[in-house]
Nucleic acid binder design. Structure first.
Lengths: 219, 219
DNA sequence: TTATGATTAAAACGAACGTATGAATCATAA
DNA sequence: TTATGATTCATACGTTCGTTTTAATCATAA
């Protein structure tokens, strides 16, 4: 628990976060990580035990705060609502807005972690899916229940699907700052990256709410 | 160009498609692929040259048809419209509906390819991103232009963003038949897989159109 | 039937992987 | 100052990776 230790752990976590984001879990080697972190190759196994454990720690460091924050905000909303259902827009903002606003906070991983999370949600190795499922379970259930109460006229299965679609749109919007160039070329280049994030939140929120409240499909 | 050759190539492509879908590009080894295909290890390099080229061929085999079909459908729609803008719902269906309906056709890769595509869009290795960008460029531009004309009152940048969000929701909906269990547990289990797909298309379409036509965000 | 080119097969290549080891170095408390 | 436990370091281990090589086998045309 000395200065150097904390520093080394931190440097490894930071490098891992960035490299896993850029090249994926399998595509990143321990030598890349320790190289970028400027520490010895053996440091990862000494401090974290294994590459898998490092990956988990990279996520835990950020998700613990995020999930607590999501719980806290929803608690607040439900307290304010005083028994009444919380507005859908407030629920969506509490879940996705909180996530997106993380990207503005470099101390919480900023864009890097957000993009890592986005890409990991669609490329889960077995061990990472199990880990994420476990970390997310409780929060997910709370938010689903809140949406059920907020939209009593919408079938629950439909809400679950739309939650899923919202997750996808958000993951992709985050993960794909590069893939974005696949869809667009020039239209968005003008905005710099912080400006882009500021505008992304309301843009995405409008889209998500529009989708959530769309007319029900006719089978 | 004999029977055995064609068969070997096909078996490798099928195995590669399935394994890349399940474990990602980096997470799949040539020995897994040739093992599952029941061919010799050297067959991949003989027939495709390298692992990267195999990956590209796995995509090309499906995307060529998909992109042609998307072009054909949009051509038809614009011919019918006879100079007038095509309805947004028709454009969305031509792009995303065509994609989703591929999943019902086992001869075109079915769910397997669709999920591979979905996950690859968020985990692109450099070489794969370049390849997809090249394959998609022309089709994307056509559809963007069609949407610009269909929604003249919406700023172009906004349309591009929303196209991007729609891509994300769709990718995730496809790729995440497993990750889905992260969000839901029981609600959807009841439906079997073909039934699920039949219902997914209208569900997703409602969501996408709701998002596309949502009120513009206030900055 | 034999010659030829295409394909398959077995084996090996060097490189890179994640991990483990044991000695050197550090910070700290006695 | 010395002893002790924590950390860093260089190095090596055994595996697995994608690829290459060389020989065997196949199908086909002369």
């Amino acid at each position: 628990m000395e200065v150097r230790t904390v520093d080394t752990r931190q440097r490894i976590l930071d490098a891992g976060e960035r490299l896993f984001m850029a090249h994926g879990y399998e595509g990143t080697s321990m030598r890349q990580i320790t190289g970028e972190a400027g520490v010895n190759l053996a440091a990862v196994n000494y401090h974290f035990g294994s590459k898998e454990s490092l990956m988990q720690e990279v996520f835990r460091r950020r998700l613990d705060w995020l999930n607590e924050e999501r719980m806290r905000v929803l608690d607040e909303l439900e307290a304010e609502a005083d028994g009444q259902p919380v507005k859908p827009s407030a629920i969506v903002d509490a879940f996705f807005g909180t996530l997106l606003r993380m990207a503005g906070d470099e101390n919480r991983g900023g864009m890097t972690f957000l993009r890592l999370l986005g890409r990991t949600l669609t490329e889960p190795s077995e061990f990472i899916r199990a880990f994420l499922a476990h970390e997310y379970q409780v929060v997910m259930d709370r938010y689903k229940e809140a949406l059920f109460r907020a939209l009593p006229e919408v079938p629950k299965a439909e809400i679950v699907w739309r939650f899923h679609f919202m997750l996808g749109a958000t993951s992709y919007a985050i993960a794909g700052t590069d893939a974005l160039r696949l869809v667009t070329d020039w239209q968005i280049e003008a905005e710099d990256s912080t400006d882009r994030l500021d505008r992304l939140v309301p843009r995405l929120m409008s889209f998500l709410l529009g989708g959530l409240r769309a007319p029900l499909p006719q089978f």
